[in-house]
């Protein structure tokens, strides 16, 4: 039985262990997973990118990452369904995921809710109760989804901006609704980018 008795010798063993771990766990393991992912699940491993609806082959975004639907001035485009408020950079910045971290009594938070409510009501006349997800920003700032109520609340506005029948748009919202996973996990939701892509398909 030989035990290591001195500090210097223990440090030497530690250093060698860390170096071999760095190679094994820091390089080989991720590289192996990279290979498996790129071969077995290329779509997911590369970000679940969605292609443009029409002729262009370039992706318009990721099915998992929310994006902004704004006009040239940067204002919400009424002809698209709008995502939740976002605190990722200026909004849906893929390089700066973040929530607001507002506490429940923070005056800035209360002001943000009031503004979001006013703007939602202005954009969607006839709505009385604004869905909570439309008034709050998500944890990531990249939430790809909105609630079904939120999507339905915007349907009339989107239909009128695109001169479509409201019923047609409402049917589309229901078709694009994802239920709870396995019937009981999470919340029912509508992916805003997928919904808007389908909306363009409706027009064509």
């Amino acid at each position: 039985m030989v035990t290591i008795r001195s500090w210097p010798r223990t440090f030497w063993v530690s250093l060698r262990t860390m170096l071999i771990f760095s190679l094994l766990l820091g390089v080989l393991f991720p590289a192996l997973m990279l290979t498996v992912g790129q071969l077995a699940f290329p779509a997911q491993a590369n970000g679940s990118m969605l292609d443009a609806p029409a002729q262009s082959a370039a992706p318009v975004g990721s099915a998992l990452i929310g994006q902004r639907f704004t006009d040239k001035e940067g204002n919400p485009d009424p002809s698209f369904f709008q995502p939740r408020p976002s605190n990722a950079g200026d909004g849906y910045d893929g390089e700066a995921s973040s929530g607001s971290n507002f506490g429940p009594e923070n005056p800035v938070f209360l002001k943000a809710i009031a503004e979001a409510k006013a703007s939602y009501l202005a954009q969607n006349p006839g709505i009385t109760v604004v869905p909570a997800d439309a008034l709050t920003s998500s944890a990531s700032g990249l939430d790809p989804d909105i609630s079904v109520a939120n999507a339905l609340g915007q349907a009339a506005r989107v239909a009128s901006a695109r001169s479509l029948e409201p019923a047609e748009v409402i049917t589309l919202v229901h078709a694009q609704t994802t239920g709870r996973d396995l019937g009981f996990l999470g919340e029912p939701r509508v992916n805003v980018l997928k919904l808007n892509i389908a909306l363009l398909g409706l027009e064509n």
Binding site: M33, A40, Q44, A45, N46, F69, F80, D93, G94, I197
Partner: peptide, 29 residues
């Protein structure tokens, strides 16, 4: 890791990729 990738978690070395969004903006994925 394999199960997570099947569920949609990414595993690539792509860096940040710019895409032109549906409404014509630019987003960095």
């Amino acid at each position: 890791a394999i199960l997570l990738m099947a569920g949609g978690v990414i595993q690539n070395l792509n860096g940040f990729t710019d895409v032109t969004t549906l409404s014509g903006g630019v987003q960095s994925i």
